[in-house]
């Protein structure tokens, strides 16, 4: 909180938060426009970041542009605070901005996320920054950028339903489980980045500001607080989120998004919260899942390298 008052606490070889001030201004202008037109993709002059595309360069530029010395940053990768990507980004901002970091959702003022929304409801004043690989929800069916721009401009979104139609005709239900398209503020169809559709309802009327950065595609879009965000569906195939028959093996939660973890090569497995902080918090408060006492599960929970919990995507 008083970091700014003291001597610079970051590596002064870099400008605060890595990007130069002009770039940050440019990005903030794009962000303002994005907030003013919820769901609309604003092009921006993306910079090269010191990591490869696909590792969160878009999200990092947004974070760098909105973060101040008094902010507290949380970074999650598929819900986990302690995976390689999350750890690296957190360390990066510690070094170039000297800001405080946290794993606790409620303590963070800025949360950069890859593919999850924390289970704990966000509050006013918090900023959620999404890393976005492909910002264009229509791209898979319409490769022409000129055409997708017109479709957004004139709100011609029939094609989006064609995508869902194809799902139902092939699988009997809408099989899209992540990057599930949403209608923002009744106007723009938007890709929520590859979060599980389980998280889609959390975007609706969220108290926090939600910012989306796509580094490779150089697009920024946003959902201001208290905005309507509806998942697209059919009357006879309404939107539904995933459900699990199990509770979290460690904390016993029944209302969180669960990852399947293989424990051995004999078919041993367990389902645990994807949101590590949420899970740990519950366990601290005395909640126990069916496998909390199991040594294998305990070893997993203590392990600092939980990259095994990732879905191996990327």
């Amino acid at each position: 909180m008083n970091a700014a008052a003291e001597k610079a606490s970051w590596d002064e070889a870099y400008n605060f938060a890595y990007l130069d001030e002009q770039t940050k201004r440019m990005i903030r202008r794009a962000l303002l426009k994005a907030v003013a037109i919820p769901g609309y993709q604003v092009p921006f002059g993306g910079r090269e970041m010191p990591l490869a595309y696909g590792w969160g360069t878009g999200g990092m530029q947004v974070t760098a542009s909105v973060i101040g010395p008094s902010d507290t940053l949380k970074v999650i990768d598929q819900g986990a605070d302690d995976t390689t990507n999350a750890v690296s980004i957190r360390r990066f901002f510690k070094r170039v901005a000297g800001i405080a970091t946290t794993e606790a959702t409620e303590e963070a003022s800025v949360i950069q996320t890859r593919h999850r929304i924390p289970e704990k409801p966000l509050k006013e004043g918090q900023v959620l920054v999404y890393q976005v690989p492909q910002p264009e929800p229509l791209r898979k069916l319409e490769p022409r950028e000129t055409e997708t721009r017109k479709m957004h401009g004139y709100a011609e979104y029939g094609l989006m339903h064609v995508r869902l139609y194809e799902d139902i005709s092939r699988f009997g239900h809408i099989a899209t489980t992540y990057s599930y398209p949403v209608m923002v503020n009744g106007r723009y169809v938007m890709s929520p980045s590859p979060i599980p559709k389980f998280d889609n309802p959390k975007m609706e009327n969220n108290q926090a500001i939600q910012l989306f950065g796509a580094g490779r595609e150089k697009r920024i879009y946003a959902i201001p607080p208290y905005t309507s965000v509806k998942s697209l569906d059919f009357e006879d195939h309404p939107f539904e989120v995933q459900r699990w028959p199990q509770a979290c093996a460690l904390c016993g939660a029944r209302d969180s998004y669960l990852d399947e973890v293989v424990l051995d090569d004999k078919g041993g497995r367990m389902f645990v919260c994807s949101d590590t902080h949420f899970c740990a918090d519950r366990q601290e408060k005395g909640h126990r899942g069916p496998m909390a006492a199991d040594p294998a599960a305990g070893a997993f929970a203590r392990s600092s390298d939980t990259s095994a919990r990732k879905e191996g995507e990327r």
């Binding site: 069916l141 029939g158 064609v162 139609y165 194809e166 005709s169 092939r170 569906d233 059919f234 195939h237």
Partner: peptide, 21 residues
């Protein structure tokens, strides 16, 4: 890349049809 049914249905969805069946 869209099924025959999807190709025929696209115009209907474009004018607001939202009932899969």
């Amino acid at each position: 890349d869209v099924s025959a049914g999807g190709n025929v249905g696209e115009r209907l969805m474009a004018i607001g049809a939202r009932h899969y069946g």
